[in-house]
Amino acid sequence: MNWISNYVRPKINSLFSRRETPDNLWTKCDECSTMLFHRELADNLNVCVNCGHHMNITPRERFASLFDGGTFAEFEAKAPIADPLKFRDQKKYPDRLKAAQKKTGEKDAMLLGYGDLGRTKVVMAAQDFGFMGGSMGMAVGNAIIAACEHAVNMKCPLILFSAAGGARMQEGILSLMQMPRTTVALQMLKEKNLPFIVVLTHPTTGGVTASYAMLGDVHIAEPNALIGFAGARVIEQTIREKLPEGFQRAEYLLDHGMLDRVTKRQDMRDELISIVRMLMKLPPAIAADLEPPAKIEDKTKKSEVAKK
């Protein structure tokens, strides 16, 4: 069966490549200020080798680090009407969008991929905090709907990596409507008894947390990720008291029963493989058999559509 026939032909994706200028050979850890050599950092999936701080990772880098052989088929959602409100604050919304597109090389804040994870077919969706704060607008909503539809068509699990400050204000009420829209999409998935795994990454707040990010069968978070509905400053102003140490951090939410697990990025792949295979009632994956994922800065290898 050729699954591509079900969809618009996916683009063969190419791995992200950074130019090696002396400027970006070193990255300073936001937490411990250690200067980290870029190769070392990339090998460690953008996790500080000194203090374990999880830095931002692009959706493409994340997919490369998870899918078998780093290869996946990218697919796209229907493009929404551009700038439906003709929104303008200090800048025009289309200008903000263009700037974000130029900065990230992506069309919007959610990347979709289909492929093998530990030889298990999965759809993955990853939100890009670097794209207008990952904000949820029509494009993100359409992407989640497309991800659910694809998972239903392929009868496979959906793994979603959330990262957003909340809804995209420049789309007004239409951004808010992504809360019910994405919920409808998830219901289609759940009615087919297909797993929905949410990995909450730093930060996941506002309307994103109050919709799809809290509707998973399993909730995993990356260490120290900020997760919540209201912003800490708003809360402090409202209740006039200092918030406790670690408030709204992944470990805090784990303690309060909102998450199943807090898992390091380096362990995420094995854990996801294990969970989705059990939920899909598949035999255990034999690690020695598996093709390892790609290194996230591997420039020599062009990924291609997963063959199986």
Partner: peptide, 17 residues
């Protein structure tokens, strides 16, 4: 929704979702 400490601790996001 109420922006409060207890509200967050008891899962404001999950309850709304």
């Amino acid at each position: 929704a109420f922006p409060g400490r207890g509200a967050e601790e008891r899962g404001q996001s999950e309850a709304i979702a």
